[in-house]
């Protein structure tokens, strides 16, 4: 069952098209990765999902309703963003206390444990927190709120590797006990590759991939070997990426060609990060080609 639906959603700011005719669903109690480059439109999509931005056109539905100014829907949604600002007069604990008041499923014990673990100085002014500590305020709120739809937008800027791992561990453990719909938006695709079950990739405001990570992983392979054999193997399929070295070629192919001779070839699975990066590049190049009106790449 899907808890979030976007249909033909477009967001235009004066002369930029931030989100261009986007449609996708978020399924209940799954962990979704919303991936894409900087400025691809990820944050704008999430701001529209949480009623903070109003789409120029199209339809956004959360639990079947329009989230904008919807007091029945919004308390079931928690949106943690890297760019969240806190009032200057706040101590770190004030941010947590405020969150405790508005999220119905808030777990104070869990929040306290997370404060310990992330070593958050709760009595310090928010303004005096380091970038990493500020991120942990958001992460703690996002986890302890236990909102049925929880969105993390680049939640861990400035967090060290240990703290990031702690975040992933808690996320998975708590998700196991209290299943909910989670969206992770991040650049660190490799780090979240094992966590996310569904992947949506957005580029230049458009969806370029939207599938379960399992399906995606089985859709592309890296093939290397003698150029001739590789070209034969890849014939008729999208070559997302190609590297040549002497008579030796390595390609990332989307769609696995069946019944082809792989005797002289080495076939490896593609990592999610590889797949996302190569697919994005492939689309960019295609768009650039279309933009030139020539269809060829120079």
């Amino acid at each position: 069952m899907s808890v979030v639906n976007l249909r033909g959603v477009t967001k235009r700011y004066r002369d930029t098209l931030a989100v261009d005719d986007v449609s996708f669903d978020l399924h209940e109690n799954r962990i979704h990765g919303l991936l894409g480059r900087n400025g691809a439109g990820k944050s704008t999509v999430m701001r529209m999902l949480t009623g903070q931005e109003i789409p120029t056109s199209g339809q956004v539905r959360v639990f079947g309703e329009n989230p904008y100014e919807n007091a029945a829907v919004l308390p079931r949604v928690c949106f943690i963003k890297e760019s969240q600002r806190y009032p200057d007069i706040f101590l770190a604990r004030h941010a947590l206390e405020a969150a405790a008041m508005v999220f119905p499923n808030w777990d104070q014990d869990f929040a306290d444990r997370l404060v310990e673990e992330f070593r958050l100085p709760v009595k310090r002014r928010v303004r005096k927190l380091s970038r990493g500590q500020l991120s942990s305020v958001g992460v703690i709120i996002g986890l302890a709120a236990r909102a049925p739809v929880t969105l993390f937008d680049e939640p861990y800027l400035g967090l060290d590797a240990v703290a990031r791992q702690a975040f992933y561990d808690h996320l998975i453990a708590d998700y196991g006990r209290y299943p909910r719909t989670i969206v992770l938006s991040t650049h660190l695709i490799d780090e979240v590759a094992d966590i996310i079950e569904d992947v949506t990739v957005i580029d230049r405001g458009r969806i370029v991939m939207d599938d379960s990570s399992e399906n995606l992983r089985s859709q592309a392979v890296t093939v290397s070997g003698p150029t001739n054999a590789v070209e034969q193997f890849a014939d008729g399929h999208d070559v997302l990426h190609r590297e040549d070295l002497g008579g030796f070629t390595r390609v990332v192919v989307s769609g696995i060609p069946a019944d082809r001779d792989t005797a002289s070839l080495q076939v490896e699975p593609v990592s999610l990060q590889q797949l996302v990066v190569r697919t994005t590049q492939f689309h960019d190049a295609a768009l650039a080609g279309a933009g030139n009106g020539k269809g060829d790449r120079s």
């Binding site: 007091a71 949604v77 928690c78 949106f79 969240q84 806190y86 706040f90």
Partner: peptide, 10 residues
């Protein structure tokens, strides 16, 4: 901005 970040309506 903080309160809206906590899913409060305008």
């Amino acid at each position: 901005p903080f309160a809206l970040g906590l899913s409060v309506t305008r």
